[in-house]
C-alpha cells in the first residue's frame, strides 16, 4: 500500500537567471513497511526531496500525497506533520534541559495529549527502541548512539507512520550506525514507512530500494524490492 506518493515533483528556488532547480521532475512512491534510501552527492536534491515528502516544503509543480491527502489541499501543514511525520536528523535537536522521556513526550503534548498519556506513549516507544532504561536521563548523560535512539523514539511517538531520516548515522561509528539502521528496519517491518537520506552505501544497503539522485533527477534505482529483505 502506497503511503507517500511524489508525482512529477519539481522545486525551483529563486527566479530568472539565478533560479536553482533543486528537483527536476521526480516521481517516487513509498509503501507502508518499506525502507527507501536516497543517495547522491551534495547538491543533488536529497534534502529537498525529504522536505517535500514530509510537508516541510511545497513543490513548485507536481503533487505530493501522504496517505490519502494531497498536500496542496492541506492548509495547516504543521498539524499534519505533527500527526503523521517523524524526523530524525544528524543534529539530534534533543532539548538538553528535558529528560529522554520528556523529549519523546513533547510532540504529543504539543498536540494536546495530556501528560500522563503522553508519558505512557513515550515509555512504550522507548521500549520499542530498547531504551526504556534511559527514560530519566538527560541528553548529556547519553552516548551518541543512545541519543539517536531517543530521537528515533521521538520521531515515532503517537500514530506517526512516516519517518524521514536525514543522515541519522552522521557522526556515529559503524557499529552504532548499524544499530540505528537495525532499529529503523524493525520499525519498517512493524509497518512504518521510512525515507532515509544517506551518503554511506553501507547504511543505504539496509533499504528495500535505493534511489540515486543526480542534479535533481533520479539517475538509477535498485527498483526491484528484495523479497528476502522483508
Amino acid at each position: 500500500m502506497t503511503y507517500v506518493r511524489l508525482a512529477g515533483v519539481t522545486r525551483v528556488h529563486g527566479e530568472g537567471a539565478t533560479a536553482v532547480h533543486a528537483l527536476k521532475g521526480v516521481s517516487l512512491e513509498l509503501d507502508v513497511g518499506e525502507l527507501v534510501a536516497v543517495m547522491g552527492p551534495s547538491g543533488s536534491g536529497k534534502s529537498t526531496l525529504l522536505n517535500l515528502a514530509g510537508g516541510l516544503d511545497r513543490p513548485t509543480s507536481g503533487t505530493v500525497h501522504i496517505g490519502e491527502q494531497d498536500l496542496a489541499g492541506v492548509r495547516d501543514l504543521a498539524a499534519l506533520r505533527r500527526r503523521s511525520v517523524g524526523y530524525v536528523f544528524q543534529d539530534l535537536n534533543l532539548i538538553t534541559s528535558l529528560t529522554a522521556a520528556e523529549n519523546v513526550m513533547l510532540p504529543r503534548e504539543l498536540d494536546g495529549v495530556r501528560s500522563g498519556r503522553a508519558r505512557q506513549e513515550a515509555m512504550a516507544v522507548l521500549a520499542e527502541v530498547d531504551s526504556a532504561d534511559l527514560a530519566d536521563r538527560f541528553p548529556e548523560e547519553l552516548s551518541g548512539g543512545q541519543r539517536q535512539r531517543i530521537a528515533i523514539a521521538r520521531a515515532l511517538v503517537g500514530e506517526r507512520r512516516l519517518l524521514l531520516a536525514d543522515e541519522p548515522t552522521g557522526a556515529l561509528d559503524t557499529r552504532t550506525g548499524d544499530e540505528i539502521l537495525r532499529i529503523l528496519r524493525a520499525r519498517c517491518d512493524a509497518g512504518a514507512a521510512v525515507l532515509l537520506v544517506t551518503h554511506e552505501p553501507r547504511y543505504a544497503a539496509w533499504a528495500d530500494r535505493v534511489v540515486f539522485l543526480r542534479d535533481g533527477m533520479i539517475a538509477d534505482t535498485t527498483d526491484t524490492p528484495l523479497a528476502s529483505a522483508r
Binding site: R182, R185, P201, R202, A204, A205, W206, A207, V210, F212, A219, D220, T221, T222, L226, S228, A229
Partner: peptide, 20 residues
C-alpha cells in the same frame, strides 16, 4: 558507472540481508 553502482548496491543489500 551507473550500471556498476546499481549492481554493487544490490550486492551490498544482499550482504546486509545475510548479516541480519
Amino acid at each position: 558507472i551507473h550500471k556498476q553502482r546499481t549492481a554493487t548496491m544490490r550486492a551490498l543489500q544482499r550482504l546486509t540481508t545475510a548479516k541480519r
